[in-house]
């Protein structure tokens, strides 16, 4: 459903994506991993049309996305930091997103799940970072989009909310959605990922299932396998 061909992007002298080819056609969760500044967020933002690549093309549902915007009807995006217009309250924000997106949505179950009722009438600037993140999750997930893009979505969540969030992602997976996730929390990857992509210096360094990763490094320990991947990367680039 998402196809990326020869994607290149640089910011100044810094080549962030360097001829990236990827395909996401199977339902399930793909964890996109890599060290800081490896191009994970740039990749996600390119799919959303927020970053405009220099070379290469992205296709969503078979359509080239350049200069189009309506394909984003099918994508829900959860950004790294949730910041909103300060003087609106949470329910106004949710209503705004509903009005702007037009598609069917239901925020109620998520509001209940994250116990957001008391915060709905408060101005967004008075909410804590974690509560803002919950509002952000609700605003993105209240639509039934076939593609979810989650850029470090768990920042600021308390342990209970994190569990709720994991359960939520699991439900979405069962609905047959394509989910792309970047995170530095390896347990989350271990519990949720069906596929792992390791990006390094703008290229795909590893692309396979968690089992394949364990097999490649001949270990049972997931975190050790990821660590080996990162170390190998260091060795290759010293």
């Amino acid at each position: 459903m998402i196809e990326i061909q020869g994607l290149q992007k640089s910011f100044g002298k810094n080549q962030v994506l360097n001829g990236l080819d990827l395909k996401f056609s199977e339902p399930g969760l793909t964890a996109i991993l890599g060290p800081n500044a490896s191009g994970k967020t740039t990749l996600l933002k390119s799919i959303l049309g927020m970053v405009i690549p220099e070379k290469g093309d992205i296709y969503v549902k078979g359509k080239r996305i350049r200069d189009h915007y309506d394909y984003r009807e099918d994508i829900a995006f959860l950004p790294q930091i949730a910041r909103f217009p300060e003087n609106l309250n949470a329910s106004e924000l949710l209503k705004m997103v509903q009005v702007l997106r037009k598609g069917d949505s239901d925020a109620e179950p998520l509001i209940k799940k994250f116990k957001l009722e008391p915060s709905l009438s408060k101005k967004l600037k008075y909410l804590s970072g974690g509560t803002k993140q919950k509002v952000s999750i609700t605003s993105a997930m209240m639509f039934d989009c076939p593609i979810l893009i989650l850029d470090e979505p768990t920042a600021g969540l308390d342990p209970v909310s994190l569990m709720e969030f994991k359960a939520l992602i699991d439900e979405e997976k069962k609905k047959g959605k394509i989910i792309l996730l970047t995170t530095h929390i390896l347990t989350l990857v271990h519990q949720l990922a069906d596929r792992i992509i390791f990006i390094l210096e703008g290229k795909v360094f590893f692309n396979g299932t968690p089992e394949e990763l364990l097999k490649k490094y001949n270990t049972d320990d997931f975190e050790a396998a990821i660590a080996s991947l990162t170390q190998q990367e260091v060795l290759t680039h010293v």
């Binding site: 959303l48 915007y69 950004p79 910041r83 702007l100 997106r101």
Partner: peptide, 17 residues
């Protein structure tokens, strides 16, 4: 500059720039 993140939220919606 203050509404940059808000702009990012809007850019992720199906809306032309």
């Amino acid at each position: 500059y203050q509404s940059r993140e808000f702009v990012e939220l809007l850019l992720a919606q199906p809306l032309p720039r």
